[in-house]
Every structure is written in C-alpha cells, then in structure tokens.
Simulated scan of single mutants.
Amino acid sequence: MAQGTRPEAVAKKTWCVPKLNDEFCERMEDVLEQYEKPLDPNEPVVCLDEQPYQRVDDARPPEPAAPGKIAKQDYEYRRCGTCSVFVAVEPKAGKRFVQAKRHRKRADFARFVRDLLKRYPDAERVHLVMDNLNTHNEKSLIETFGEEAARPMLERIVWHFTPKHASWLNMAEIEISAIQRQCLGRRLASLDKVQSELSHCSRDRNRKKIKINWTFHRKDAKRVFPELYRK
C-alpha cells in the first residue's frame, strides 16, 4: 500500500468494522488479484471513486503580496455549495482521469464512465475497481443512455467491488488524497474553478506518470486476516 499506510492500521481505523466473512474474502481476493496482474493495455485495471468537495469563497477580498508586505487572507469564508470530484486512476500506468460534477447521481456516474471508456479506445475490456455505492452498477448506464446505447459500453466493463466497509482496498482513495493536497486545499468558489484546478493537477501528474506502488498482496491478506483462511 502506498505512502507508508499499513493495511492493519487502515482496517482498525475503519468507522464501520467490516464483517470478515466469505463475501469479504472473495471480494478482497478478487481486487488483489487485479492489482497483481501485469500492465496490459488491452485490459487495463482502473480504480474509480468520488469525493464530495465543499466550494468556498473569500468573505472579504484578500490582500496580495507586495514588496515588504506579506499576502493576507481573512479567516472567514463564504460557502458556495458542494460538488463531487470523480477520480479514475490506472495505478501501474501512471494515468488518471478527473472530473468535477455538481452531483453524484446515477447520470453523473454514467457520464463519467462513458468519458473514461473513451480514453481507452483500443482496450477490449476495462476492469473497474470501486466500492459498493448504489450508483456503481449497470443500471446507471442503462437509465442514463438507454439499453441500446449502454450495451456496447457494458460489454467492455468488468466490475470489481471492494468488500463492504473496506474501501481502503481501492487505490483511487490514494489518488484522491494526493489531489486534495496538491490542488484542492484552497478556496475554490465555482465548479469551473474546481474543474480547472483538477485538470491542471491531473495533466501534471499524467505527464510525470506518477504511479501507485501497492504492496499489499494476497499473501499479506492471509497474514493480516488469518481468521478468513482457517478453513
């Protein structure tokens, strides 16, 4: 797992303790199997997640820096509503795709997946790793585009879901954390401004081909969760 995070620590910090049952084991092993595959442009493994973001603006105009004078910003701010940041990352290729949307409804998810698939025109299948949000399914694409238009997209998608209350297995969370630190830790009032910052940040990270070094494998799962393997 990247950035020095140990799976044992993440599992213990989870607010909702996951049920360590057969379903947990099956889904965990399925996700970890995808991460252990070598890079394959024909069947890329892409992690997807979304995060709410609070848009805010300055309550009073900030004072810019000048010779002999530091920049000043009032601690008070004005709330401008929320939006959702959708992130998809292909960890081994160092590629990511990011969009800001007003909501995270079925249509928002469906359109993000449609745009994501366009970035892999030559891939036969795209393996999507995500959590169990009720919009993360075929129904979202069918309701948004209609069954006839959605079918070609669905035929290219292989769904892989993390266990319930174990979203730390989704590497998209690592990418979201990095993006938040790099470009979202400031006051952004409009959706366009949020998208502009996200686009600039993701282009820079793609240019540098920043990858995620995932070090938690199936053999580690047997050590961390021995109760799942006693059978």
Score class of each variant (00 low, 15 high):
residue 102 R to V: 15
residue 101 K to F: 15
residue 93 A to F: 00
residue 100 A to C: 15
residue 88 A to M: 08
residue 126 V to E: 09
residue 105 K to G: 15
residue 112 F to S: 15
residue 136 H to T: 04
residue 126 V to C: 13
residue 155 E to N: 05
residue 146 G to Q: 06
residue 148 E to C: 07
residue 96 R to Y: 09
residue 87 V to Y: 01
residue 142 I to C: 10
residue 122 D to L: 07
residue 86 F to D: 04
residue 121 P to N: 13
residue 96 R to P: 09
residue 96 R to V: 06
residue 155 E to R: 12
residue 153 M to Q: 00
residue 100 A to R: 03
residue 89 V to S: 06
residue 85 V to R: 06
residue 120 Y to A: 08
residue 130 M to S: 06
residue 150 A to R: 00
residue 136 H to P: 03
residue 157 I to H: 05
residue 98 V to Q: 02
residue 87 V to S: 10
residue 106 R to W: 04
residue 126 V to P: 05
residue 145 F to W: 03
residue 153 M to S: 06
residue 88 A to R: 00
residue 97 F to Y: 14
residue 138 E to T: 09
residue 156 R to T: 08
residue 135 T to A: 11
residue 87 V to K: 00
residue 91 P to V: 14
residue 131 D to N: 08
residue 134 N to D: 14
residue 112 F to M: 14
residue 106 R to C: 15
residue 154 L to G: 11
residue 135 T to G: 11
residue 91 P to E: 15
residue 100 A to V: 11
residue 134 N to Q: 02
residue 85 V to G: 04
residue 154 L to S: 06
residue 96 R to G: 14
residue 130 M to V: 09
residue 108 D to C: 13
residue 114 R to N: 10
residue 128 L to T: 09
residue 113 V to W: 06
residue 107 A to Q: 14
residue 151 R to W: 04
residue 149 A to D: 05
residue 96 R to H: 13
residue 138 E to R: 14
residue 142 I to H: 01
residue 123 A to Y: 00
residue 88 A to E: 09
residue 149 A to G: 00
residue 91 P to G: 10
residue 110 A to R: 03
residue 153 M to F: 02
residue 93 A to V: 10
residue 118 K to D: 14
residue 145 F to T: 05
residue 108 D to W: 03
residue 96 R to D: 12
residue 127 H to N: 11
residue 150 A to N: 03
residue 94 G to V: 12
residue 137 N to A: 10
residue 130 M to N: 06
residue 92 K to W: 01
residue 124 E to Y: 02
residue 128 L to N: 10
residue 117 L to Q: 08
residue 157 I to C: 07
residue 148 E to V: 04
residue 115 D to V: 12
residue 156 R to M: 02
residue 150 A to G: 01
residue 107 A to T: 14
residue 124 E to M: 02
residue 119 R to H: 13
residue 105 K to I: 13
residue 95 K to E: 11
residue 152 P to Y: 06
residue 127 H to A: 09
residue 130 M to A: 08
residue 107 A to P: 14
